[in-house]
Lab assay of single mutants.
Amino acid sequence: MATADDFKLIRDIHSTGGRRQVFGSREQKPFEDLVDLGWLKRSSVDSRATHYQITERGTSAAL
């Protein structure tokens, strides 16, 4: 179930172009929650960072 923080984060991601790069596993937790909701997808993972991209469902949630 989505929380107020989830909606705040997806709106922030949407307003800044729909993509986010995250460093460190602790910082990934809120983004992984949005992946579980179907609002974000992991577009790539490298040794230092994970890249996320907003989905259509995420765009709808952000509006």
Rank of each mutant, 00 (worst) to 15 (best):
A49D: 06
T3S: 11
I10N: 02
A62D: 02
A62Q: 02
V35T: 04
S60G: 08
R48Q: 14
V22T: 04
V35P: 00
F31H: 04
E32K: 10
T16H: 10
G18D: 03
F23C: 09
Y52P: 00
T59Q: 09
R48E: 15
L9W: 04
A4C: 12
R11K: 11
F31M: 05
S25L: 08
I54P: 01
Q28K: 11
T50I: 14
L37D: 01
R42T: 07
L63S: 06
L63V: 09
S47M: 10
I10Y: 01
E27K: 11
D5V: 07
D6R: 07
S60R: 14
K41E: 15
L34G: 01
L37H: 05
R26G: 12
Y52L: 01
S15M: 13
R48C: 11
R19W: 14
L9M: 05
D36K: 15
A2F: 06
G18Y: 02
K29R: 11
W39A: 00
R48M: 14
R42A: 09
R11S: 07
T55K: 01
V35A: 04
T3A: 05
E32L: 09
L63P: 01
G17N: 07
D33T: 14
F31Y: 15
A49S: 15
D12G: 06
S15W: 09
G17C: 06
R57F: 10
G18W: 02
D46F: 05
R42Q: 07
L34Y: 01
W39Y: 03
D6V: 05
W39N: 00
R26S: 14
R57N: 09
L63Q: 08
V22C: 05
F23D: 08
G24M: 07
H14A: 09
G58D: 01
K8E: 11
D36T: 14
A4N: 09
L37N: 02
S43H: 13
T50V: 14
H14I: 06
G18H: 02
S15C: 08
R42S: 07
Q53T: 12
E56S: 09
G58C: 01
I54E: 03
S47Y: 10
H51G: 08
E32S: 07
G18R: 02
T55R: 01
